[in-house]
Write a protein that binds this DNA or RNA. Structure first.
Lengths: 283, 283
DNA sequence: ACACCAAATGTAGTAAAATTACAACTTGCA
DNA sequence: TGCAAGTTGTAATTTTACTACATTTGGTGT
């Protein structure tokens, strides 16, 4: 865990002098990591052993070890904590907060992804006769993006924003078709219905949605993304970003998989051509 | 810069013994940060001053300072380096690489954003009579997403995928209208034309595009995102993600500026959606 | 091939930093 | 008031890092 947060949390448990040290470090962590224990003791107006005890209380081996932890907390990237925007924030603040929370959400999403399912879905997609991407509301643009990506692969791809078109499309599904349904909550009624229609027409249904949702129960495969809930009103839907990134992952997997096959194919063509050519040694 | 990369890069410039130290550190950086200079010297089979000189050569103040840098490089999150996917990668690897490069790109984008322009654009949007979002290809889905976000604000928002519709819409622009054009490269001809049409009809044109592009020259305001170029074939378009996040930033700025009354309105929109969803307690 | 110079490396001593053990001081409670 | 538990500081010890200088290595020109 981030040691800066830890200091803030344990603040109550510290003794008076230890708290002095905590204040100084929190106020100026960058200085702290470049100071010796003596300097820091003087700044906090306590003795050196007090600083040392402070470090130990935070489960570090001693002052140098503490500095290491602190340095890591301060390292670029780590402090991507889900910081919420509040009303008093200026443009600089909310810009940074949003970027940082987005990155934090991506990190959480990354860790929650089940690689095996990704692999199976990629497998499925490469073998699909037709791929459909459907989503509603905020997820519609994600489906839209997926269309863009997969369209380049020269595969039959389908995307509709309209519920009725989505339904009709699913009714025409058959064995070998893959329907990818995107929904953060997984509670959108019409999308759940579409999953049922697609399944009853022998299509494989892949859900990019949250686990244990009504939608996930209707899917053949579920790629769940555990993105922190967008509880805050100002909070952007980080889930979309995670979904898009997941689409990127699928598209990449697709390219890699098809790439291999494609290269083998190339080689076979070359071999076939050889017969119609003069060999090098014949020259 | 990440010190681990630095070590790898400068490897050639090192002396024989220094290289020994480099090898040991690269092979086991986690151990290195918890070792004293003496231990590390013994492991590398060199003398202590050699280790010290090694540290100095990397522009650190000495061994402790070097450890600090190393710790930061090893910190969770920092190694979000743009790692490229290669053909031999398995699902686990490419998934991680894509998430990490996306995060890395977001970080770069964050640093490149001009907050003042963000502020001015938010200002503009809050006062706009009508807001249009246009993009083509991959950027179309970003515009689509923007539509979704701003639609909730109960502001007249327009979005078209069709070039002709985009043109016509811009021809009907008037003073007070804001047209947001999204394009990673900023070299899409028809989008540049649309910018010109919109401007000549007194609309304010905001470009979410790269600086110094043809499109940027036609815009009233440019929000440039310096996202690393997607050179690699397997590389996903991280630029879209950055654009989306920027849209989030604008939307958030918009909400903040509009104040309390407006936020109540937002809540009402959310409540309305409830009817189309399965309730949590229904499970 | 040899001598010489410069760069690289190591040795030993020194300075600095961190830790330990213990003493003195608070603080709360009987 | 006095004592016990917890807190803080002092001083000595140990560990760690650094510096100055000596030795070695490798390369270059005669």
């Amino acid at each position: 865990m981030n040691i800066l947060e830890k200091i803030t949390q344990n603040k109550a448990a510290f003794s008076k002098s230890e708290r002095k040290v905590a204040e100084i470090i929190l106020a100026n962590p960058q200085t702290a990591i470049h100071s010796s224990i003596a300097t820091l003791a003087k700044m906090s107006d306590v003795s050196e052993p007090t600083v040392n005890r402070f470090c130990r209380r935070l489960d570090t081996k001693g002052f140098p070890d503490f500095k290491l932890h602190l340095a890591q907390s301060l390292a670029n990237g780590t402090p991507y904590v889900n910081r919420h925007v509040d009303e008093s924030d200026g443009p600089g603040e909310y810009t940074n907060k949003i970027f940082e929370s987005t990155m934090a959400s991506l990190e959480v999403a990354r860790q929650s992804i089940d690689v095996n399912t990704v692999n199976r879905v990629v497998d499925l997609l490469t073998q699909a006769q037709k791929i459909s991407f459907f989503g509603l509301g905020a997820s519609a643009s994600v489906a839209h993006d997926a269309l863009n990506k997969f369209f380049r692969f020269n595969v039959p791809v389908v995307y509709f924003e309209d519920i009725l078109m989505q339904r009709m499309s699913c009714m025409n599904c058959s064995d070998g078709d893959v329907v990818v349904l995107i929904s953060h909550t997984g509670r959108t009624k019409s999308l759940v219905e579409i999953a049922q229609i697609a399944r009853s027409n022998d299509a494989t249904v892949v859900g990019i949605t949250s686990a244990d949702s009504p939608l996930s129960k209707e899917c053949t495969y579920v790629l769940s993304l555990e993105v922190p809930e967008d509880t805050d009103m100002y909070m952007p839907m980080a889930s979309r970003i995670a979904q898009l990134t997941l689409i990127d992952v699928l598209a990449t997997g697709f390219t890699l998989r098809r790439g291999n096959k494609f290269r083998e194919n190339l080689k076979r063509v070359k071999d076939t051509l050889r017969g119609s050519r003069f060999d090098k040694r014949d020259l």
